[in-house]
Amino acid sequence: MSVWKYANPAKFMSLSGRVLPVLTVLSGAFLLVGLVWGFFFTPDDYKQGSTVKIIFLHVPSAFLAINIWIMMLVTSLIWFIRRHHVSALAAKAAAPIGITMTLIALFTGAIWGKPMWGTYWAWDPRLTSFMILFVFYLGYMALWTAIEDRDTAADLTSILCMVGSVFALLSRYAVNFWNQGLHQGASLSVDAETHVDNAFYLPLLVCIAGFVLLFVSLVLLRTRTEIRLRRLSALQVRGSAT
């Protein structure tokens, strides 16, 4: 028994087919509870007023935007080292979700920034880092669509993801050097002294769980699509050969 047996596309399809409905229901439930709790049943912040409710979208999407890239890096490495197709396709499937999360984080942040900082956009290091992350996602997705041969595309995108990760990290620190920030510190720290107030912390955790579950469901769904498309093109090649 090892996790690698699910790298077999057929095994992956049967397992993900069984898990997907459960995950979908769970993510829907968590999102519903978390967002309803956050939107209707949290108090206003004494300083930020009702805008604090944006946190339930902003923090989970930002959290995922970064972690989806890391997940893509890990799956790219697995593809590169162990040549499991499911892994490469999962990285491909995750990118559009990651870019959507980046967009949500940027938009909600801009809307939140207007009443709090007096501007939609400032060249704050964290905002800038997300803009950079957005461009990295764009390049990654563009490379997938530009190359016809599937294995070549998987190889080249995974190389790009690895090199890109190094430079994304470097950019993150370079950006810190270049401008002072407006952002508050860690909202999510486990240390109760520094994280946000408990009235917001609990629904926030529920929302994050909901976003993560939504991501897992979507990535499974999209990977299944990619596997089907791959099988389709394999069949077409065989069909045209005979």
Partner: peptide, 10 residues
């Protein structure tokens, strides 16, 4: 350009 420019940022 799309691939290289982000790498030039730092």
């Amino acid at each position: 350009s799309l691939l290289v420019l982000p790498l030039y940022i730092p």
